[in-house]
Every structure is written in structure tokens, then in C-alpha cells.
């Protein structure tokens, strides 16, 4: 996936929405900027598929040696897939954040939360301000 085509949450998760079997499914990951800021990740805690999430709700955590960063769901829906290989291959978050570094897939209840997300240009601005 190309970063330019994704939506972003203020809390640095990216979202890509696609149709799967007639339903809208959002793939969620962590932006390259955020992964770099977190530096030297050592652990990741992910939910199980089947869990309901709503936007802004914590669904998992990534840890560096001396920091814990919660992951917030940018969308409302049910988790239908989890990248269960990821915790054992944390390097993928840095090497391929928009591909094999995806984190969860969520079947959307509706589009409501998508409206609150930023496009790439707006997100770039936010990163510049934070960086």
C-alpha cells in the first residue's frame, strides 16, 4: 500500500478501507513516523479476532525498553483478522509498515469514524509539527 493513499489517526495509526465480500474492511497499521519515534520496539500485545472495537478505544500495545504505547482503533467495528506473526517479527513494523507490518483488520460497522481521519498531506503536517 502506498502511504499517500491511506487515512491517518492523530494517534498515528493508518487505515486502508477495502470491500471484502460486500463488506467494508479496514486494515490498520502504525505509521512509519510513529514506528521511528518509538524506536527499538521489544514487544507487542495484540487482541484476538472477534473483539469489537470503537474508534479511540485501545486495542493493543507496543513496548520499547522503557515505554509503553497504546494502540488506538481509528474505526468502529469487529476485528476480523490479526497479524499474529507480527509480535515475533517486530522488525516488519519498521521495514514494511504499510505492508507486512499491518496490525489488525476491522469489519466496519459504518463509515462514521472515517470522517475524523486525516489524509496523507494533513498527517504529514502533524508529523512535522511533532517531529
Amino acid at each position: 500500500m502506498k502511504p499517500e493513499e491511506l487515512l491517518y489517526a492523530e494517534s498515528h495509526e493508518w487505515v486502508h478501507v477495502a470491500e471484502e465480500e460486500g463488506q467494508k474492511v479496514a486494515t490498520v497499521g502504525i505509521s512509519a513516523f510513529a514506528v521511528e519515534q518509538l524506536n527499538d520496539l521489544v514487544y507487542m500485545d495484540l487482541p484476538e479476532a472477534g473483539k469489537k472495537v470503537s474508534s479511540g478505544e485501545e486495542f493493543g500495545e507496543v513496548e520499547s525498553v522503557k515505554a509503553v504505547s497504546p494502540l488506538y482503533s481509528p474505526v468502529d467495528g469487529e476485528i476480523v483478522a490479526v497479524n499474529s506473526e507480527l509480535p515475533d517479527h517486530l522488525e516488519r513494523l519498521g521495514e514494511d509498515p504499510y505492508g507486512s507490518g499491518w496490525v489488525i483488520k476491522v469489519r466496519l460497522d459504518d463509515d462514521a469514524a472515517l470522517g475524523k481521519l486525516m489524509d496523507h498531506a494533513a498527517y504529514q503536517k502533524q508529523c512535522a509539527a511533532e517531529g
Binding site: 514487544y43 513496548e63 525498553v65 522503557k66 515505554a67 509503553v68
Partner: peptide, 12 residues
């Protein structure tokens, strides 16, 4: 595994 502990995770 210090992220389990209070000086990092505080109330959690």
C-alpha cells in the same frame, strides 16, 4: 521487562 512496572506503566 520493566514496562510491567509502576515507574513506566504507572496506574496500569
Amino acid at each position: 521487562l520493566q514496562t510491567r512496572e509502576q515507574h513506566i506503566r504507572r496506574e496500569k
